[in-house]
Structures are given as C-alpha cells and as structure tokens.
Design a protein around this nucleic acid. Structure first.
Lengths: 138, 138
DNA sequence: CACCGTTGTAACCATTATAGTTATATCTTC
DNA sequence: GAAGATATAACTATAATGGTTACAACGGTG
C-alpha cells in the first residue's frame, strides 16, 4: 500500500508555523519543529513559493505567508506540493485487450467514476483552511 | 507522485468480466483481457476470494461472482485489494517537535481533516456498483 | 493411476517515488 | 569579504509495484 507523501502534511505544518509565529521562520527553525532535515523543508518551501503561498527571503533568511491563513485551503497545499497530479490519484492499467468488450470499455467508464471519487476528496480538502486548523491548537 | 495501484482497476476489470461472461473465466483468459501476466490475475483473485467477492475453482479452473453485480460496489473492491489500509490514504510525518505548539497539535488536528477527506472519496466509491459500470459498456 | 490444464504461492528482479544526506553555489546584510 | 541564510544537484537507502519464472497442489478425464 502506497500512501500520499508526507510532503503534504509537512507543508501544512510549515504553513501553520508561518501563520502562528510572530517572527519570520528560518528553514532550520522549521526543520526543528517538523523534525527533519532542513533541505527537505527548503524543497517544500520552493514548491509553496512557486504556488504563490509563501514568500522566502534568500540571503537574509526567513519566510512568511503571502495570503491570510483563512484564504489558504488544504486543497491549495495539496496542489502546491503536487503529491498527486490533476485527476490522477488512481492509476488504471494500460493497454487492455480491445478485442474484449470489457477491455474496450473499462478505461473510459472507470476513469469517470474515479475522477468523481477524487473530486469528492478534493472538495472536502477545499473546505478546510489553515486558520481553521490553528484555531484548534491548544 | 505516487498513485493508487492498478491492482484496483484490474480487480474492477476482472469483476466486470465475470459479470458479463456467460462461461467461467480462467485466469489465462482474464489475463489476456487485462493484458498482463496470469500470476498478477491470480494474486488479485486471491484477494477478491478472501473478501468473499468471487468463487474460484482450483483444479478444474474458472471463477464466478459470489454476489450479484449490483451488490458489489467500487468501495468493496477498493477494500478487497487493500490498495490503502483503513484511514491511511494520507501519511503524516512522524515525531514532530512537541516543544513547539504546532508540532504538538498538528498530527491530531490534521488527522481528523484527512480522514474526512478520505471518507468523502470512499463514500463516492460506494455509490458505484459493478452493474452500473457494465451498463455503460457499448 | 497417469495425464493435463488449472489455481496457489514463493522467490526474485527492475523500476519508481520518497525521505534523507552531503556538498556546493548563491544571495543579503553588515 | 565574512556570516548566515536559501537554492539545488547528486547520491543513498528504503519500500511498493508490476512482472516473471518456477514449482506445488488440485481435480477432472482417459
């Protein structure tokens, strides 16, 4: 069983840190909170930056949110770290035998259902914002 | 990006074959339709058998559904082939720093949201049956 | 009983994504 | 230029997948 990469949960962790910390967080500081190597953090920060979610200051150091935390949804993060490409959570076996009625139809018919299932999950992710998460911290 | 195994789509393919074929299908016949190695088919058949979805006749050969196709949902298949263990589609990074307010809370708070997202997807899968799929074949 | 085609599995391999690590280049301020 | 930070390339170990070969066990048929 292969699960969705921890890159996603780490990215959420990073954004929660940026949203709650008064000062700018450096990669090393974040790495300590996440408990991993700073390079991992910088890799993820690069993706968040590309997605327009954070600002990173090379040289001087530190990062900050580019949007208020109530305007960043889990779906935004999910997309930013590209754990899954669009409509590709499920993989379908390739080149079934098109001589067979099932082999000929299975891909198109299944594809539609699986996309719908993926969309249902993403819809749910889009309902949760970073600010909603940090409101639950104690 | 890691996707959900084709084991799932192959399993659906197999069940559609069993639902539409008049005669019993052998592993080799199914393998030809799926276009893969018979051992792959037998592996998946073993999982479907354990889940009570199919009957397989060793020795004589062939398999058949144990339930009418309108009573087998995509969620049943998804569970049967165990592409993802219960509530574990998403993985969360381990051992965050509990000295940090975010590190201390992130796991519990995120876990709840991710479970909800996964549940939304599974709910959608449970709405589609094998008979619904084959009704769309042409 | 022996044969034959089938299922059931174990063992192994190549491929791929991930998480982590080391090293080095680049940037900004002082 | 020094100091401290980010950016990134290259490499490793690990794990899941899909495929393959090989062989044991099963169950009818001649």
């Amino acid at each position: 069983m292969k699960q969705i990469s921890t890159r996603f949960s780490m990215a959420v962790h990073i954004l929660c840190l940026l949203a709650t910390s008064p000062a700018d967080c450096t990669g090393d500081f974040i790495a300590q909170s996440v408990n991993t190597n700073p390079v991992i953090i910088r890799r993820i920060m690069g993706m968040l930056k590309k997605a327009g979610l954070v600002d990173v200051r090379p040289g001087v150091g530190g990062a900050s949110l580019r949007k208020p935390p109530d305007q960043i949804t889990l779906l935004d993060v999910y997309r930013a770290v590209r754990v899954v490409e669009t409509d590709q959570l499920f993989r379908i076996h390739e080149h079934p035998n098109i001589q067979c009625p099932v082999g000929r139809n299975i891909e198109a018919v299944l594809q539609a259902e699986l996309k719908a299932a993926q969309a249902a999950m993403e819809e749910r992710l889009s309902q949760t914002t970073i600010s909603r998460l940090i409101a639950q911290f104690q």
